[in-house]
Computed example of a mutant assay.
Amino acid sequence: MKQEIIIGTRDSQLAMWQARWVLEKLQKLNPGKRFILRGMKTRGDHILDVALAKIGDKGLFTKELEAALSAREIDMAVHSMKDLPTRLPEGLIIGAFCQREYPGDVLISRHGLTLDALPPGARIGTSSLRRTAQILHFRPDFNVITIRGNLNTRLRKLEELNLDAIILAYAGIHRLGCDERITQLIPFDVCLPAAGQGAIAVEIRANDPEIDDLIRPLDDHDSRAAITAERALMRKLEGGCQVPIGALGRVQHNQLLLEGSVASLDGSHLIRDRISGPPDQAEQLGEELATRLIGMGAGEILEKARREFDLK
């Protein structure tokens, strides 16, 4: 039995917070073991002057960690769930879907104005095509500005770039203790989150029963079902950073409710549908909803979005 367990993570402030949260939970459950954090930079951390969708999303923030995991240099990797591609490298699995934080997006406005109240042509900062497409569907007059960087960098750019507001995930803001900066929780009927947003994933080797047993108490059944459905929908639609897809699964009264949306880059076309069923059929529900969206025209919208973004 290993007495020293190495936890791999990106070395950003938020990623380290998440990895420490996992470490503290595991340390409390296993006082006889020693847990060590190992931070590292990923490709996405090095390329900060290009939009995410331009550099591809296949393991942009995870590949280096997964290589270390496969090479047995670390024993587990802690990720933001939304960063994990829907297809993992051979031999790796998500060992724990940690209990999800509120999954939605928030508006941080310089003058305390909500999305409805922002002036015509307001400058909104975001790095996400998903957010861009959905808020332009809500307010076509917005001027969306691409911003990259960690959470603190993006908060700083709100002032530096003279933006009216920026959009971020609630979970990151909350985990770093910046709740007072939040102007508005953006309603889900305006903007569905990214698949897995708000959850922490613990990735492990598939053939490592000792580590699997160690992290099993961190796995949250409802979060696993909801996010499995969201990721199945994304996989079926072949979605990622390059395409504007929203997904939200929730388990309520022993039923899994899943909503999905696909939008054009300019927000002029948006399709949305929902499905429900038993949580143990999460994968099938995600695939079925994706098929429905494809039948409503999602395939054409996504193909056009990919072409348009490639030309920009």
Rank of each mutant, 00 (worst) to 15 (best):
M1I: 03
G8V: 03
G8H: 05
T9D: 05
Q13S: 13
A15N: 10
M16F: 01
M16V: 15
W17P: 00
W17Q: 14
V22I: 13
V22Y: 04
E24H: 10
E24V: 01
Q27I: 02
L29W: 00
L29C: 00
K41R: 15
H46E: 15
L48V: 14
D49S: 13
D49I: 08
L52G: 14
A53S: 15
I55Y: 07
K58S: 15
L65V: 03
E66K: 10
A68P: 00
A68Y: 07
A71W: 00
E73H: 09
I74C: 08
M76R: 01
M76N: 06
V78L: 06
D83C: 10
P85Q: 06
T86V: 12
E90N: 09
G91I: 04
L92G: 09
G95I: 11
A96M: 05
A96S: 12
C98R: 03
C98P: 03
I108R: 04
L115D: 02
A117E: 14
G121N: 02
A122N: 05
G125E: 07
S128M: 06
L129H: 08
T132I: 03
A133Q: 03
A133P: 09
A133C: 03
Q134S: 04
P140M: 08
N143E: 14
N143I: 11
R148K: 13
R154C: 07
R156E: 15
K157E: 12
L158K: 09
E159L: 14
N162V: 01
L163C: 03
A171K: 13
R175L: 12
D179R: 08
R181A: 12
R181L: 15
Q184W: 05
I186Y: 06
P187C: 05
F188Q: 03
L192S: 05
P193A: 02
A194L: 14
G196W: 02
G198N: 01
A199P: 11
A201S: 15
V202Y: 02
V202T: 04
A206T: 05
D208R: 02
D208G: 06
D213I: 00
I215K: 01
P217S: 06
P217Y: 01
D219E: 00
D219G: 00
D220S: 06
D222T: 10
S223D: 08
A232I: 09
A232K: 07
Q242I: 12
V251C: 13
N254G: 11
Q255Y: 08
Q255A: 06
L256P: 10
L256A: 06
L258S: 01
G260S: 08
A263R: 02
A263F: 07
A263Y: 04
D266G: 10
H269M: 13
I271W: 07
R272I: 04
R272Y: 09
R274V: 05
L285H: 09
L285R: 08
G286K: 07
E288G: 01
L293A: 00
M296K: 14
L302Y: 03
E303N: 13
R306I: 10
R306Y: 02
R306K: 11
R307G: 04
D310A: 13
L311D: 10
